[in-house]
Design a protein around this nucleic acid. Structure first.
Lengths: 184, 184
DNA sequence: CGTAAATATATGTTATAACAGTATAAGTTA
DNA sequence: TAACTTATACTGTTATAACATATATTTACG
């Protein structure tokens, strides 16, 4: 549906402006779908994404640090999310003997089985979700990549570890917008 | 920058999958910029958007209901955000005499002045942000509109008022993803 | 070796998103 | 007009995002 109808706005002041709204609207539309699919299975989007990261490493365990990096996000709550997954018996945690600062996180059989089930669900729901042909998808991806040519002053990567974070204290709590997930 | 480099992933299993990640990544990239621009001015993105909605109606006042609708979101915290704006003297609140259930919210001179300043800032920062030509923007918007052809089972609009919300209690707290803003 | 620096994770704190529920006013109908 | 329904806004609650700090371990360096 055209974005103008979706949000009941007669017209935008420019194609540029329309593109901004369109990205935001489409993002919400997309996330909403994912969340609704996950809801009956009792896990959140964040938990789901961590499970997929763990599967990506399986049978190798992942440290909290590795998970954080894959989430491409500051994700200070990573420890706590992993703890919730552990409470559901979807992951195991072991102290790493080589470097006792690390915690090895491993997805369990139960976790793998859940992902397998969800794969099928998503395959079905996703197939009809993004309604573009393969050729259109390519154009679309190219445009998105080009769109972001200009780098932001503060890059995501600057915040990947505590040290960097502490060196930059110019900003206060304002970033209420965390959904930088890594799908794979 | 290509999305593969941005998130250090060698390749995606499909263009479809890449598009999903790309939308999410681009959204975060966009919001991050907005938030950083607003930060020095001491208002959040949500507050900023409500101010713009109020300016859109000015000199007419807006009810909380109207603001909620324009936000295109459940936005149960609307009252509280307006209260914060009032504390900063950016808006005024008056009891509506015609219908005493309503609260008339009006942007103040100070609020208008702040928006005017921010307009200039954003014009500068935005100009270089989305790096697409006008023709590319048109193609891009067309693709985004087409992308969403398939409607989600649960539409946003179903949640615009309390009555509708109460009639649908099939879901629990899961929707941690609110950034459906209305820019104008 | 001893001390400082760096690293990895866990925990504490505050604001707020996402609900649910309540209070008040207006509209509707018997 | 009373009784019921709907509409509008406000308030309460819980989980968590976005920090900041603390603790434990390893590495680096004099």
């Amino acid at each position: 549906m055209k974005i103008e109808e979706e949000i009941k706005q007669k017209q935008f002041k420019s194609e540029y402006h329309k593109a901004m709204v369109n990205i935001i609207f489409t993002y919400n539309w997309l996330i909403k779908n994912q969340v609704e699919v996950l809801e009956p299975y009792g896990i959140t989007l964040q938990q789901f994404n961590i499970l997929r990261i763990l599967r990506g490493q399986y049978p190798k365990p992942s440290t909290i640090k590795l998970i954080k990096e894959r989430m491409l996000d500051r994700m200070s709550d990573c420890s706590r999310i992993v703890e919730k997954l552990r409470a559901k018996k979807l992951v195991e945690r072991h102290l790493c003997v080589k470097d006792r600062r690390n915690v090895d996180v491993l997805i369990t059989k139960k976790g793998l089985a859940l992902l397998k089930k969800l794969d099928k669900i998503f395959e079905k729901s996703d197939k009809n979700l993004i309604a573009l042909s393969d050729k259109e998808l390519k154009t679309f991806n190219k445009l998105l990549d080009k769109l972001r040519r200009k780098n932001l002053k503060i890059k995501n990567r600057d915040y990947l570890n505590t040290a960097d974070r502490l060196n930059n204290s110019t900003h206060k709590r304002q970033l209420n917008h965390k959904h930088l997930y890594n799908f794979f």
